[in-house]
Design a protein around this nucleic acid. Structure first.
Lengths: 164, 164
DNA sequence: AACCTTATTGCAATGCATTGCGATAGACTA
DNA sequence: TAGTCTATCGCAATGCATTGCAATAAGGTT
């Protein structure tokens, strides 16, 4: 399974935004530190993900990686994304349609808000989400993962339209 | 697309838990009211969904329906589930693994909480979720859809373990 | 340099969900 | 009852994500 791996990220294991080493360097160190290898393909996949720094679905990433290196296969791409996720350098969440969307942790962790009326998709940064996460913790005791927070509902303008 | 159809459910269109007509009767009325047809297969699919009143993934529902009527195909099952959803009688959300989980609206709308540590999955009823939805509205203006609320994080005991 | 161990990769197959299309069958009209 | 319109269904194909397995390549050891 794919998602369960996320749970292996323990507090403190997340990469500290180190002004020193580049992303690639830090990635390499993290991977090799686990007795694993830093390959060209992994480098490429990380580059592609970094280049599409907003969000990209798994399929999009596969496509872009294959554009740069046709020998790369989907399995390798997905496995590498899993790896990056285990290491806390990337994360993914499931969009409205259940498809995966990946992004680098570099981009501050954030949640997603989807309007069922107009389809608008807005992001929720850590500061904005704070009260929400606090409410969740108060009610449930859970420390919710902002990055997997994918809310659906109706945006203010659609609510106004519906109330009319 | 699948999910977008949910947005067609307007406030007030949801079926009121009417002690009169059975679920089947109300469904039939709703479907025929739209100039559509109430078929045996649809009846069967609704029955199966009602029988698995907790939650069931799309694949599970397909399997159960086919057990009762081998002539039914996945496409029919999924299309019917979409229909039930459009009518507000059912809903689905995407679990941690991105797979779909359906349930009848009969079962009170509720959210889901998944612990990334131990995998525990707990439900969140409307009352418990109220403060959370309120916080979301305060911060974002969005009226979040409780039913699509699928949170991930760490449960209290896993948090305690991690803090150790 | 030859060797061993193990991570990584590509390939092919699988599963779930979705969609287009032609065939069928239901409902309604005359 | 015959005829028309259109919703529904089954089939086959497609797309995305995942996994098992065998071949390969990388890294370290002697």
């Amino acid at each position: 399974m794919h998602c369960n791996k996320v749970s292996r990220i323990l507090p403190g294991m997340k990469p500290t935004p180190d002004p020193q080493g580049s992303l690639a360097t830090r990635l390499q160190a993290a991977v090799q530190g686990r007795g694993q290898r830093w390959t060209e393909q992994r480098q490429l996949i990380a580059d592609v993900l970094a280049a599409s720094d907003g969000h990209a679905t798994g399929a999009e990433l596969v496509e872009r990686v294959r554009a740069a290196d046709p020998s790369a296969t989907p399995s390798t791409v997905y496995r590498t994304l899993d790896l990056l996720e285990e290491l806390g350098f990337a994360s993914h969440h499931h969009g409205v349609d259940g498809r995966e969307t990946y992004h680098l942790e570099e981009v501050l962790a954030h949640g997603h808000l989807h309007c069922q009326g107009c389809g608008a998709e807005v992001e929720l940064d850590a500061a904005a989400a704070k009260p929400i996460l606090a409410a969740i913790e108060r009610v449930t005791g859970y420390a919710a993962d902002l990055d997997h927070l994918s809310l659906q509902g109706r945006c203010p303008s659609c609510r106004a339209a519906a109330a009319r």
